[in-house]
Amino acid sequence: MSSPVLEIVDLHKRFGALEVLKGINLTMHQGDVVSLIGSSGSGKTTLLRCVNLLEEYEDGVVAVAGEQIGYTKKNGKRVRLSEREIARQRAMTGMAFQHFNLFPHMTAMHNVMLGLIKTRRMKKDEAHSVAEKWLERVGMLARRDHYPGQLSGGQQQRVAIARAIAMNPQLMLFDEVTSALDPELVNEVLSVVRDLAKDGMTMLLVTHEMQFAHDVSSKVIFMDDGRIGEEGPPDQLFRQPKSERLAAFLKSSKFS
């Protein structure tokens, strides 16, 4: 069997004295969809950000497609990779952010093309047609010449997802991609993510949409104070929580 798309072994992360991740283990294979749920401050975002090294981690291993992210061993010592290497590794994953983070001075089309040209070294024409394909997939082709400021939140988020996924990453990271949206815009974004899951995209996502997590995930992880509190198939986690903490969390988030 080929190496897992994502392998996290005993991951620890501190912000100064505060230990935010206290030994996380997670293995994901091609096509897995894993949802992270849990109360605010439990470390979900931080875990995601360690995977593409937006956060440094002190201990443990994060490996994408068998390659450790960010660090290597030299003479038994752990050393950080060069910025160029890290940039290359970051392009192995794609990320969609809570606040979209589109480049405001570029049209939707150019937002998607930038990484294709600069990182994937595509010719303009090729980048254009790849970008067109993905903007079409997220239903934003008609607005390709619009600037982010001319788009609704839901539309911006769909462009941002297209920007990430056009890079053809092995793993997609989604950090609460709907929590900054007005309620009526949530579904257009969730349905895009659902379609990607159906197509077999490997995805690690943080969400507060419990029904969505239930429907889309192959596995759900309940994060509790920097640890994995409970994990398993969605039905098991949502219908028969083992711990008081998870039961209380589900009750507070009104999963029905």
């Binding site: 593409n52 937006l54 910025e83 160029r84 940039a87 290359r88 970051r90 392009a91 994953t93 794609g94 990320m95 952010f97 606040h99 983070n101 589109l102 480049f103 930038l114 990484g115 600069k118 990182t119 941002a160 920007r163 990430a164 890079m167």
Partner: peptide, 22 residues
């Protein structure tokens, strides 16, 4: 906003490209 640099990093841009393009 720091999110701009983070988005640039997440699509594999180097610092140089991030600076000049973003």
């Amino acid at each position: 906003p720091p999110g701009q640099t983070e988005a640039a990093k997440s699509i594999g841009l180097t610092f140089r490209t991030t600076f000049f393009s973003v």
